[in-house]
Amino acid sequence: MIFHVNHKTYEVDLVGHETLLEVLRDKLGLTGTKTSCMESECGACTVMIGGKGILSCITLAANVAGEPITTIEGLADGENLHPVQQAFLDYGAAQCGFCIPGMIMASTALLTQNPHPTREEMEYALDGNICRCTGYLKIFEALREAGDKMSQLKAPRESALYQYIPAVSSTP
């Protein structure tokens, strides 16, 4: 089956029962997406499909073959971090860091659609991502900063995310 992950194309042999989380980590080596609760409670495995945050632990990989998938590895452009990643660093929004890939993916999905969310909109968008360290305040501050940066780019909302993704298409 063909997978389009982070603007790269991969051909993967599947039996049919593999979750997207397993394919990303075990077959494609994209271990930034975290394995945690594995029952859709914590959000650590969040990736984006078509710009929406979804849980890869309850997604059958075969079900999303051929669709544009973005993982945490797909956000930075070489050495240049995505504004959401940079803001998380600048604001100290990560402590142990385990939830952060999922948190950043959910945040990016929100800010791509709405760069200036209210606090309530942030809470609503991140209600599926659990962080046991930060208390969320610094995360919300980071989102505000990242949203400002993303909106300054004056790009159409739907394509804002892809400015940071190198347009590479290859089969490893």
Binding site: S40, G43, K52, G53, I54, I58, D127, G128
Partner: peptide, 12 residues
């Protein structure tokens, strides 16, 4: 809809 579960679940 707004009150169902969490955002990633509502996306799926």
């Amino acid at each position: 809809c707004r009150n169902i579960s969490t955002n990633p679940i509502r996306n799926m």
